[in-house]
Nucleic acid binder design. Structure first.
Lengths: 115, 115
DNA sequence: CTTTTATTTAACCGGACGGTTGACAACGGT
DNA sequence: ACCGTTGTCAACCGTCCGGTTAAATAAAAG
């Protein structure tokens, strides 16, 4: 273990099943059975995925009788977004270059040389 | 293999060494030796990290003589940011609730009951 | 042509990951 | 008190991951 929080979040998000679970939790709390229903996968497998998400801080879990509902913990995702934000200027710049190129060829300069 | 592109990107970002490499590439292209210099790690290890980043589309590589410089491929990161964007409203809402709570206790309602 | 520099490939290793099955714990209903 | 429901724990399995070292490749330099 001993991984830093950001790595844990990225690792947790690097699995389509876990991302689908997060998407489902956008509609509100859900039990393990509810969450497992769409997947062709055993219940313990889903339980493990939930534990990964919980350790990454992306979800939290409650206790109601024998149910342990999971809910979204959105501020954790904000941490990821904040990290990404440092790179925004790079993809903005890329997009601007692409945009300029597209406008150029539309003006009848198909080679984009500008001459 | 056979992993979807988004999972590949998240997995690539889930390693502090690879994130450090990306940060370094913000300052411009760099050779493998340049990139390896800050790390207590063999050269093949760094080469493998670069391959992971390349397969995820986060970087691309050129050929200049015996050097194979790596450069940032920022639009790939935008793909990740776009996925995250779906969740923004959730952490915005969380932040608003926190904000309201902080304003409340500042007005002399330390229990935050509002009564 | 040989040497040097830059990088990748191959083979290997330990540990983490994603899944399984089977046993077990916790609780509500009857 | 028992049963069904809900969920986790433990052990296991095959694969992937992050690292190593040693050898191979590519191209420049002497």
């Amino acid at each position: 273990m001993e991984t830093d929080p950001l790595s844990a979040k990225f690792a947790a998000l690097a699995d389509p099943t876990r991302r689908a679970i997060l998407a489902r939790l956008c509609e509100g709390e859900a039990s393990v059975n509810d969450l497992a229903e769409p997947f062709d996968m055993s219940l313990p497998a889903v339980s493990k995925h939930l534990k990964v998400l919980e350790k990454a801080g992306l979800i939290s879990r409650g206790r109601e009788a024998q149910w342990r509902p999971a809910r979204l913990e959105p501020m954790a995702l904000k941490g990821v977004a904040d990290w990404l934000e440092h790179y925004r200027r790079f993809w903005d710049a890329s997009f601007d270059r692409l945009d300029a190129y597209l406008k150029k060829i539309q003006k009848g300069d198909p080679n984009g040389t500008g001459h």
